[in-house]
Design a protein around this nucleic acid. Structure first.
Lengths: 214, 214
DNA sequence: GCTAAAGCGGAGCGACCGCTCCGCTTCGCT
DNA sequence: AGCGAAGCGGAGCGGTCGCTCCGCTTTAGC
C-alpha cells in the first residue's frame, strides 16, 4: 500500500515559471559557474524570490536539478570511452570529453568533489560511475599503456588540476587546458613512469575532502 | 634634492601594535590562506580596526607586507635551483621547494597570478624572477632533459594545478601534491614528450588573466 | 604636570549572499 | 460569476565581508 500523496499537477503559471527558472539557471550556471547568485537567476527568469524557492528548497537543489543533463553527458562520455577498444585512447578520450563538458558547463567544476548530501544526484552519478572508471583504468593498465601505479583515487587530482586551469584561463584562452592535459597524459603513459613519492589518496580521504569542501 | 618628508618615528604603542598585527597576520595567513578575515586578524592581535587600518591601507597591503619574507624564500629557491649543476634536478627542486613554500604558507597561492597593482611587492619579485626562470628552463632544455616544447609561460599552469591539489587536500593529506607533481614531472621529461595540442599562453594573456583574477 | 598631537577601539556603513515571510494576485473549478 | 486555494513578488532578515569615522585615551616634549 502506498502512503504517498500523489503530487497534484502544477498550475499553468507555476509550471511556466518553473521552466523559466530552469532555463535561466541552466544558462547562467553553465556560462559562469555555480557562484552566480540566486537573485540574478530569478531576475533573468523574471520571477520573484518566493517563486524560485517554492520550486527549489535551496540553491544546491536547483543546481543539482539543472545539472542533471550534464550528469548524463558525463556518464555517456565514460561509457563511450569504455567502448573504445584501444584502452589508452579510451582513457584519453574520457578525460578530454569530461573536461570539455566542464568548459561548456562551468558549474560542473566542484561536482567531482562536491559537498556531500547537498547534491544527491551528483553523488549518485559519482557512485554509479566509480566501477566503470575503475575498469577504464585497469583495462589500460592490463594493455600496458597506463602506468601501473596510477590509481582510480588519483582521478580527482587530475580533475582538480585541469579544472583550475580551465577556471583561470577560460575567459582568455578557452583551450589552454588541453595543453595542460597533454603534459599530464604524457606523464601517465607506462613508458614515462618514474616511482611516485607518495601513495594515492584512500577513498576515505576523498570522502573527507568532499565533506569538508566549504 | 629630496622632496621626501622624512617619516617621523612611530610612537611606542604604535610600533608595538604594528608588530602584533604583523605577527598575527603572518601566522593566520600562513596557516589558513588569504581569506582569513581582517577582523579575525585584528582580534588575534588584540587591537581595534582603526589601528590596523592606520598601518595598512588595505588588506592587500597587509598581505603584501607580511609575505615579504616568503617572497625572499621563493627567490632563494630559484637561485638555489640555478646553482645545481644538473639542470633537470634544479628544475625539479625549484618546483618542489616553491610548492613546499605554498604548503607552509597558504597565502602564497594566488601570488603567481595575483591581482595586478594590489600587491606591488609580489609583482616586483615576479618580474625579477622571470629571467632566472627562463634560464632555468632553457638550461634544462639545452641539457636535453626538459621537453623542448615547454615554455616559461607554462609555469603558471603547473602552479595553478598543484596549488589546487594543495588547497583541496592540505587538511587531509598534506603531501599528496608531491604525487601530482611527480606525474607532471614525468610528463615534462624530454623522453616522454608527445606533441602538445595547443600553443602556450602568451605573456599578454598571462597579464590579462592576472588582471582579471577576481 | 600640562597639553597638543598622535594613536586608539569598535560601532557601524554599504555591498553582497542565501533564504524567509506574508499580503496580494491569479487560476481553475463549480 | 464567484470563491477558495495555489501561486506570486519582493521587502527584508541575518550573516559575511572590507573598510570608515570619530569620540576618547595615551604618549612624549616642555
Amino acid at each position: 500500500m502506498s502512503t504517498q500523496t500523489a503530487p497534484r499537477p502544477l498550475r499553468s503559471d507555476a509550471s511556466r515559471n518553473r521552466e523559466r527558472i530552469v532555463a535561466s539557471a541552466r544558462r547562467l550556471f553553465a556560462a559562469r559557474g555555480a557562484d552566480v547568485s540566486v537573485d540574478e537567476i530569478r531576475r533573468d527568469a523574471g520571477v520573484g524570490m518566493g517563486t524560485l524557492y517554492r520550486h527549489f528548497a535551496t540553491k544546491d537543489e536547483l543546481l543539482d536539478a539543472v545539472l542533471e543533463d550534464a550528469y548524463g553527458e558525463w556518464a555517456q562520455a565514460l561509457q563511450h570511452a569504455l567502448a573504445e577498444p584501444d584502452a589508452w585512447r579510451g582513457f584519453c578520450e574520457y578525460l578530454e570529453q569530461a573536461l570539455a563538458l566542464h568548459v561548456a558547463n562551468r558549474a560542473l567544476k566542484g561536482v567531482v568533489a562536491g559537498r556531500d548530501g547537498a547534491r544527491p544526484r551528483a553523488e549518485a552519478v559519482r557512485a554509479r560511475l566509480w566501477p566503470l572508471l575503475r575498469e577504464l583504468i585497469e583495462r589500460a593498465q592490463r594493455q600496458g599503456s597506463l602506468r601501473e601505479d596510477f590509481a582510480p583515487e588519483d582521478m580527482p587530482l587530475l580533475f582538480w588540476s585541469c579544472d583550475r586551469v580551465i577556471d583561470a584561463a577560460a575567459d582568455t584562452s578557452p583551450e589552454i587546458w588541453r595543453r595542460h592535459l597533454g603534459i599530464l597524459l604524457d606523464g601517465l603513459r607506462a613508458e614515462a613512469a618514474t616511482p611516485l613519492p607518495v601513495a594515492p589518496l584512500t577513498r576515505a580521504q576523498l570522502t573527507r575532502i568532499a565533506r569538508s569542501r566549504r
